[in-house]
Design a protein around this nucleic acid. Structure first.
Lengths: 341, 341
DNA sequence: TTGTACGCGTTATCAG
DNA sequence: CTGATAACGCGTACAA
């Protein structure tokens, strides 16, 4: 029961009859300290079980070793992989990662941003909540030179770094693929229009139809707020009970796409002969559903790593105020749910 | 460009011509401060955009508002839901959550524990790495009265709080169910024996066989380190190419179970007639595979919430040194992959 | 009810 | 190469 208060650099300094500054410097291999002193100090530190108090250091330096992350729901394959990437990269650089979920609610996002700001994170990675249309809660970071990097669900209203995929061309590719497989009545199960990822995928879909001179029909386009399994079923039910049902559906996420397949199979509809189904994200379920789901790869881990790198880089060069957008390549993954030939 | 350094209680004190301590107290509704003063202070704080510096407070109080989490891989359904539960509960109490992944490596776990310790977290939630068999890296927390709560993958070697499910009875139920469905040669796809969750599930399996007077055959028990999709295929291949192959397989996770079904289907084996397959975890894929996978529910979010509560509670009553084990109920989810009648 | 003064552990600056 | 000192922002014993 010796160190109720923990070992500090003062304790080490006392033991070695040197000053605390020397100890402080020695511990970080400062160039002005002799090799021997460094060895001495580290030996004693080791012996006494010294652990640096990063709180104190943070107070002094006015910056922590934490980077914050705000995402919608952590328990989604894309998101958890994204975080995995962030965490790996941050860890490598000696940073910790603080997670908070917005649950797709604007109010939560604002509250989380505030809590993270108060805890003096030295960088923030955000994937926007579905609801969010106002971005003032990020200005406190920007004003104080704390880097903010947006991932996947981003906004153009703020001038900051972004890591995204090319949603437009992905939507285009996916739709074109359905056309090439003989799709004539291609439906779209889409998400809310004010979130870039869905808007751009839809634009890609529309462009592909136009380029191939396929008439765009409003009734083949559905916007759903959640795009979860239940809504997937409802969407399938809606489309497949039309007088002139689609012969192909492009769902902008895999969750809904899988539900669509399950519903269609239940109705005795043959996939892909009667109905081709295309998803988005390459979630694990896309390989489990029978027939396997064609989808678009979404490099979650890579995106996480890049976002973390952006934050760390910005942290290095505080003065340079340029904003980068990194756009990653995606791949069309053609599987049984669309292969007709 | 006024507050390069941010607004502090001193600024507020100056503006109101009172002392910093008054401001400090007013901001936390200290009983000794007059209502009016409190209102004044808060108004000015609001106006100036004051944000408390929790670093400084942490240094003073020697505790942060962060709780740490060490898990194997964040991008697994069970784990990400677990974290979701922890995060929700912690957030509600004004705490942030710091995540770090061990990737099932002992060395990583030790490094993470150290990093979290250095960052002065005020509590730790751990689900042990597969490799871990030595627990010294947690003693620094315990020695310093920082609560450590183990979840799911726990150890008996440390006297601390635990949140678990009853793996033994779950394994027993699952196996018994397979027996009731006519299984006579029931195989087990298990994980490493030194991790409680797998060991206990196996014990449940063995007990069920004994209770029903079914001979235990070594060749029907396989231990795999990873239990991922690939190993699932290998396990299936192994079992199904035996001279006398099993007519039922209990896999201790869903990932491997799903692969087993996929492999078997590819071999023209009928599920569940020729082979009943039982999983564990109730991952999303269990509802996507055809036939749907019978499995055991694993209340991940609930476990996360409870673990967070334990940490927070221990933080309240620092002196009380008792260790609780919370054991949650699980449910057998019978689906098409085992229903034979 | 309010103010004074010190300390939490570290690090930057300046001096030697 | 090493030491003394101040400061980071807040909380609290003690004093008034």
């Amino acid at each position: 029961m010796k160190n109720k208060k923990g070992v500090t650099i003062y304790d080490i300094a006392n033991e070695l009859k040197v000053s605390p500054s020397t100890v402080s410097r020695a511990l970080k291999d400062h160039y002005s300290i002799s090799k021997e002193m460094i060895k001495e100090v580290k030996k004693v530190a080791q012996k006494r079980g010294y652990r640096p108090n990063s709180i104190a250091a943070s107070l002094r330096n006015n910056r922590t070793n934490n980077i914050g992350v705000i995402i919608s729901w952590i328990n989604r394959p894309f998101i958890s992989s994204l975080i995995s990437g962030i965490e790996e990269e941050a860890n490598k650089a000696g940073y910790n990662v603080i997670i908070s979920q917005s649950h797709d609610s604007f109010d939560n996002e604002v509250a989380n941003a505030r809590a993270l700001y108060d805890s003096r994170i030295s960088g923030l990675v955000v994937s926007l909540a579905m609801e969010t249309q106002n971005y003032d809660h990020f200005s406190q970071f920007i004003k104080n030179n704390i880097p903010v990097v947006f991932v996947d669900r981003v906004t153009d209203e703020l001038n900051s770094d972004k890591v995204v995929i090319d949603n437009f061309s992905a939507g285009f590719m996916a739709t074109e693929h359905l056309i090439e497989q003989g799709g004539e009545r291609i439906a779209l199960a889409c998400g809310s229009q004010h979130r870039n990822i869905y808007r751009e995928r839809e634009n890609g879909y529309l462009a592909a139809l136009r380029e191939h001179n396929i008439p765009i029909k409003e009734e083949y386009i559905l916007h759903s707020e959640l795009l979860n399994a239940e809504e997937g079923f409802r969407i399938a039910e809606h489309f497949l009970s039309m007088d002139n049902p689609p012969d192909a559906i492009f769902s902008v996420n895999d969750t809904a796409a899988v539900s669509i397949i399950q519903y269609a199979k239940g109705q005795g509809i043959e996939i892909p002969q009667d109905l081709a189904v295309m998803g988005f994200n390459n979630d694990p379920v896309s390989l489990i559903i029978d027939p396997q789901l064609s989808t678009v790869s979404h490099p979650a881990i890579e995106m996480g790593k890049l976002a973390a790198q952006q934050v760390l880089k910005q942290n290095q060069y505080k003065d340079v105020v340029k904003s980068e957008t990194v756009m990653l390549r995606t791949e069309l993954l053609v599987r049984a749910s669309t292969k007709r030939k």
